[in-house]
Amino acid sequence: MPRRHHDMGGLPAGPVATDEHAHAPWEKKVDAILRLLSGKGIMTVDELRRGIEEIGPDAYDRLSYYERWITSISNNLLEKRVIGVSELGEAMQEAQIRHAQAVGSQSQ
């Protein structure tokens, strides 16, 4: 098995970019979800990491930090059958509708 993608210590890379962004509300929500699930013993930080490591090199680099986290969290919750696939799809659709309504009411 070759070196895994996330295990990057010592590899060549460019300069450290020190510009920063303030965490968006949804990013903090991802963090909060993981803390709660971990605190309740539903999933471990180790499972979070495993899920992140398994998303593949392309997605690992393309996704932002908390995009990787929520990908791993949702996959773990599906594997553990805490949530189901189609109900997750429906909840995502509902989130989009709620957001569109909120944005629409803002611009009126």
């Binding site: 510009d19 920063e20 962004h21 303030a22 968006a24 509300p25 949804w26 929500k29 991802v30 979800i33 709660l36 699930l37 996704l63 932002s64 908390y66 995009e67 929520i70 990908t71 969290i73 949702s74 919750l77 805490v82 949530i83 109900e87 997750l88 909840a91 995502m92 509902e94 989130a95 989009q96 709620r98 957001h99 944005v103 803002q106």
Partner: peptide
């Protein structure tokens, strides 16, 4: 500001933002 960070209040809800909202709602 980080260029990859859309403004959640105004921009479209990305796939991962919707996933986050959905997971929070289902839980």
């Amino acid at each position: 500001p980080h260029p990859r960070q859309p403004d959640i209040e105004d921009g479209p809800l990305t796939h991962h933002m919707a996933l986050t909202e959905a997971v929070a709602a289902l839980l």
